[in-house]
């Protein structure tokens, strides 16, 4: 062993990985959980030790980042892989029955479930509405704050505040804001109509309420990114344009917009991914109601996972969503890069 270790240290370390996996699998199969947990832990630790021993004195940089990667693996990647594995088994987290292999059953079930398609349509509607509203408002705010004016810094801080609030606070705030008996919106409308105003009673009203709350919270984020683009435009370009007496419109399209475009794409990307996962505001404001008209796919995954405890089904659904977001993101990046090249 010693000689092997001296001659092939890296290979030994690598060979220890499948060995550790086999030992863990055997331990999980044949030993009670309380024992197999420690056996698997010990063989994993031994395997990790071999890598560390190899890298000692050879790859100091790698060793320094290793703890961070190990932590990431334990807290993030491993649970992710575990839940991915669960999506191929019959398993419910609140039952005693051990997992049984199910193959692609849950993927098939989820993809052919009309409820899922309905929730996806609701989500798509929300994404389109809220992201476009955020882009427009964020852009206009950025144009405003790109100029110097009195109290600009104070106003900027105020405008950025919603983004820093917790989701729960925003949800609770808007719940009262729209409340027909005490709420500000209802009180204001009542001055003119004499009747309390019940925004959240219809599907359209509830959607509007959610979109507005989400846009209120996240438009400042778009503004921040666009503002960074705006201040990076060199002044001399505007000076040259004014010498040439170029129109404001042309100045915007030929000078300002190209500088901002890539950041705008970035904002669009971030906000689309986030809006796709829209949960907090919906859950706090309407719980997906009236009926299920504002129940986004994220709320539905929550229900399947933590209310119905269909663990495998919710895992399969979550991976399909992850896949969708990855595809969307790549499409975005592809088109963004293509444009930049042309």
């Amino acid at each position: 062993m010693m000689k092997v270790w001296v001659v092939y240290p890296l290979r030994v370390a690598f060979a220890s990985v499948p060995a550790a996996l086999i030992v863990s699998a055997l331990a999980i199969t044949f030993l009670p959980p309380s024992v197999s947990f420690w056996v698997s832990g010990a063989v994993s630790a031994f395997s990790a030790f071999l890598f560390v021993a190899y890298a000692w004195g050879r790859h100091a940089g790698g060793l320094l980042v290793a703890p961070a990667i190990a932590l990431l693996f334990c807290m993030n990647i491993f649970p992710l892989l575990w839940s991915f594995g669960l999506s191929f088994f019959h398993y419910r987290a609140n039952r005693l029955a051990p997992p049984r292999f199910a193959g692609l059953h849950y993927y098939e079930k989820v993809l052919s479930d009309p409820v899922v398609w309905d929730r996806l349509q609701v989500t798509a509607k929300m994404v389109v509405l809220t992201v476009s509203l955020q882009m427009v408002i964020g852009f206009l705010l950025a144009m405003l704050f790109a100029k110097q004016f009195p109290l600009r810094r104070v106003l900027l801080i105020l405008v950025l505040t919603p983004m820093m609030l917790s989701f729960v606070a925003v949800g609770a705030f808007f719940r009262y804001y729209y409340e027909p008996t005490f709420g500000l919106v209802s009180q204001a409308v009542r001055v003119f109509t004499g009747e309390p105003y019940v925004l959240l009673q219809s599907a359209a009203g509830a959607t509007a309420g959610i979109v507005f709350a989400d846009a209120w919270m996240w438009s400042p984020f778009v503004m921040l990114l666009v503002l960074a683009g705006l201040v990076s435009v060199p002044k001399y370009l505007y000076e040259a344009a004014s010498i040439d007496r170029i129109s404001h419109w042309r100045r915007f399209w030929s000078i300002t917009f190209p500088y901002v475009r890539s950041l705008l794409m970035l904002a669009l990307l971030f906000r689309t991914i986030e809006a796709f996962k829209l949960f907090d505001v919906v859950f706090l404001l309407t719980e997906g109601g009236p009926g299920t008209s504002t129940e986004t796919i994220a709320v539905y995954v929550y229900r399947v996972s933590f209310q119905y405890f269909k663990t495998s089904e919710s895992a399969a659904l979550a991976y399909i969503l992850l896949f969708t977001v990855i595809v969307l993101t790549n499409l975005y990046l592809y088109f963004a890069n293509k444009r930049n090249r042309t």
């Binding site: 008996t181 925004l199 109601g289 009236p290």
Partner: peptide
């Protein structure tokens, strides 16, 4: 009932709040 009932959010807490108000 108070108009919040039309939104489907008049749960036991909301009722309680409206009554105490």
């Amino acid at each position: 009932m108070p108009p919040v009932v039309k939104t489907g959010t008049m749960d036991i807490f909301k009722q309680d709040e409206l009554f105490r108000e």
